[in-house]
């Protein structure tokens, strides 16, 4: 697994319907209307926001690799797979990302865990003073609360955490290499964690590959922790990590005004935002909330007609739909598509 292989997989999902940048936005977890819709349309939720800090340069390099191998081609800016690309995708192993559920928060989980491990690792040997590996105050306060009234100086307690961690690492099904990377990023009394460079050298792999395997292993571990009742301490550490509401903060504020009965124009005015942004928020709501009042915007007949057309054209491209339904606005078309993906219609 590396950035190129994941990119190829995503392109196979959006095959011929999107530009290369749609994949970049997806991997970074951009919270714009377009990207949030793409996530639904193309069933690529697992990859949403798995690399929040992905740079343009790294991304372009990965894309270039796919072009050179002739796995992808570009037509009118839209990217699609070649036959070689398609057979390459078929050879790939399954990915186990859960980007939509964790959105970069998995790293917060790991920071908490790393500081918790460093703390008990020192305390169990009677070392009460050490420089914390995590300087983030929020993380420090979290770990402090976590250990409130716990027997943190007892070697037995440290071992309990260690045993629980071992069990979860095995239970979640991550590869041995992933276990090596995961534990390599933990710091203890004598052993400091390894940097990404060091891990990449030890394993003789590229940095992007190591990072991605790490992120995937966190997603697998978090799922394991949440699905079984056997990990009391890890469960506490993963508190609040999984996304609770799938709406963005800004969309939540728009939703509140919308429910108070404001029109879109009036919401835009109150919030000092562009109308198109408010529309994006509505799309988000339509995608994520089953109670969304779609009929305030379009009729059942319109919805049925658009969906039938989309199916017969075999496309999700709004431009083509707009030609077929000139009387509907882009916003209305997007709403219909958003609700359709949810399977309500």
């Amino acid at each position: 697994m590396n950035l190129s292989s994941i990119l190829l997989f995503i392109i196979s999902k959006m095959n011929g319907e999107r530009t290369i940048n749609a994949s970049l936005h997806l991997l970074r977890g951009k919270k714009s209307g377009q990207t949030l819709q793409d996530v639904e349309y193309f069933a690529v939720k697992p990859f949403f926001g798995i690399l929040p800090k992905l740079t343009d340069k790294e991304f372009q390099k990965a894309a270039e690799k796919l072009r050179i191998s002739a796995f992808i081609v570009e037509e009118d800016n839209l990217i699609r797979l070649t036959a070689e690309g398609a057979s390459e995708v078929n050879k790939q192993e399954d990915y186990h990302f859960r980007g939509w559920d964790y959105r970069g928060r998995e790293v917060v989980f790991f920071k908490r865990l790393a500081l918790a491990v460093q703390t008990v690792s020192n305390l169990r040997e009677g070392t009460h003073s050490f420089l914390p590996i995590e300087s983030d105050r929020d993380i420090q306060l979290f770990v402090k609360r976590l250990f409130y009234r716990k027997p943190i100086t007892s070697p037995h307690f440290a071992k309990e955490i260690g045993d629980e961690l071992k069990k979860a690492l095995i239970g979640c099904g991550m590869s041995d290499k992933q276990k090596f990377i995961f534990t390599g990023r933990l710091t203890g009394k004598r052993d400091t964690a390894k940097t990404w460079d060091q891990l990449a050298r030890e394993l003789e792999e590229q940095l992007d590959s190591i990072r991605l395997q790490f992120i995937e292993s966190l997603h697998m571990l978090l799922d394991e922790i949440h699905s079984l009742d056997e990990y009391p301490i890890l469960r506490l550490i993963s508190d609040d990590i999984k996304v609770q509401t799938y709406l963005t903060d800004s969309a939540i504020r728009t939703k509140k005004l919308f429910e108070e009965g404001h029109s879109l124009g009036s919401i835009a005015e109150i919030r000092q935002l562009k109308l198109s942004t408010i529309e994006d928020h509505l799309i988000e709501m339509a995608m994520n909330e089953s109670s969304f009042p779609i009929l305030r915007f379009v009729s059942i007949e319109q919805m049925k007609a658009v969906i039938a057309k989309a199916n017969s054209l075999g496309t999700k491209r709004l431009k083509l739909l707009k030609v077929a339904f000139p009387s509907l606005t882009y916003f209305e078309l997007r709403l219909i598509m958003a609700v359709n993906e949810k399977g309500v219609v």
Binding site: V117, R124, A158, G162, L165, F180, T183, L186, T187, K189
Partner: peptide, 14 residues
């Protein structure tokens, strides 16, 4: 010396 993953956890936490 390269440690395996579970040796590492044991080393850190006992």
């Amino acid at each position: 010396a390269i440690m395996t993953w579970d040796e590492r956890i044991t080393k850190l936490l006992g």
